[in-house]
């Protein structure tokens, strides 16, 4: 009957999902080519050796220097996450509960410090607390020799000091929203019920802020665990970290072994995924207080 009427955009109207899919295709292709495919290939080839499918790469990561690298990376990431986490949380509280609105210049500076890591930061730390850095020489002139006490910027302690440079301001920026949305009425309520300052912290402030603190620390942990540039510029191969080991397994002449690198990277991804899941869960809990 009505076949004579031919709507102009009939195809697009009849199949709306076609235009939806076409519009999303460029992003999907980009993500598949530059994210999904590389990770899939990494996982698949981590289970492969010259002789075919095997777990040999994984056995290789569980002994000797690679096992030590894993435990060193774990320890350094935990220490910088807790150190940066505590300092950042306290600074966020100092900023948000002392003023009506935090200083913009200070927050800009914090975001610069949180994002600026890498090669330049490593050299800045060497110029500061390296063997002839200015703070080292200042202390030496006043009778305290850091390097005679066993400190070195090229060691684990030096790395922790260096990572704190971006972990501390990062935690400040992560915590600021939750700290700002902490209502001062909650403190007043606690006080009018007769709570002391200590009781207020123990039973009100810390329980409310705890999910955000743990979530922030989980992100800091992941941030340190996956970091490579700063450590690489600081000490080259001298630091025994997973990311450094992977770098030399892939780029190095003597240690070249991509299979082992793939297995290490897969293990690292599992650890990072756990950290991010912890962040997600705690973030959801934290939001309950922020409506």
């Amino acid at each position: 009957m009505s076949l004579a009427i031919k709507p102009t955009r009939s195809f697009w109207v009849r199949y709306p999902w076609v235009s939806t899919a076409l519009g999303l295709a460029p992003m999907a292709i980009g993500l598949i080519a530059f994210l999904v495919l590389p990770i899939l290939l990494m996982v698949v080839s981590s289970f492969q050796t010259d002789q075919g499918w095997s777990l040999n790469n994984y056995w290789g990561t569980m002994r000797g220097e690679y096992l030590r690298a894993f435990s060193t990376t774990l320890q350094i990431s935990l220490v910088t996450a807790v150190l940066g986490g505590v300092l950042g949380t306290l600074t966020a509280i100092a900023l948000a509960w002392g003023t009506s609105s935090p200083n913009n210049g200070l927050l800009t500076l914090a975001s610069v410090a949180a994002n600026w890591g890498g090669v330049p930061l490593a050299f800045a730390m060497i110029a500061t607390v390296g063997n002839s850095g200015w703070v080292t020489e200042l202390l030496r002139a006043s009778g305290f020799d850091l390097y005679k006490q066993g400190f070195t910027i090229y060691g684990n302690l030096g790395l922790i000091l260096t990572y704190t440079y971006f972990q501390w301001p990062l935690m400040l920026l992560l915590m600021l929203p939750s700290v700002q949305r902490f209502r001062q009425q909650w403190r007043e309520a606690a006080e009018s019920l007769g709570a002391t300052n200590g009781q207020f912290w123990r039973w009100v402030a810390i329980p409310i802020l705890m999910p955000s603190i743990i979530g922030g620390m989980a992100l800091l942990f992941a941030n340190a665990f996956g970091a490579q540039a700063t450590a690489f510029a600081l000490a080259g191969g001298a630091l025994n970290l997973i990311t450094i080991k992977i770098t030399f397994l892939v780029k190095g002449q003597t240690d070249f072994n991509p299979g082992l690198a793939n297995a290490l990277a897969v293990e690292m991804t599992v650890v990072l995924a756990i950290a991010v899941i912890i962040y997600q869960i705690t973030n959801q809990r934290a939001r309950r207080w922020m409506r």
Partner: peptide, 19 residues
Amino acid sequence: SLLPFVVPAVTLGIGLIQV
């Protein structure tokens, strides 16, 4: 937005050079 934490540059790097 959580991607950089799960897939840091090292991981993406060794994946990409193999593809």
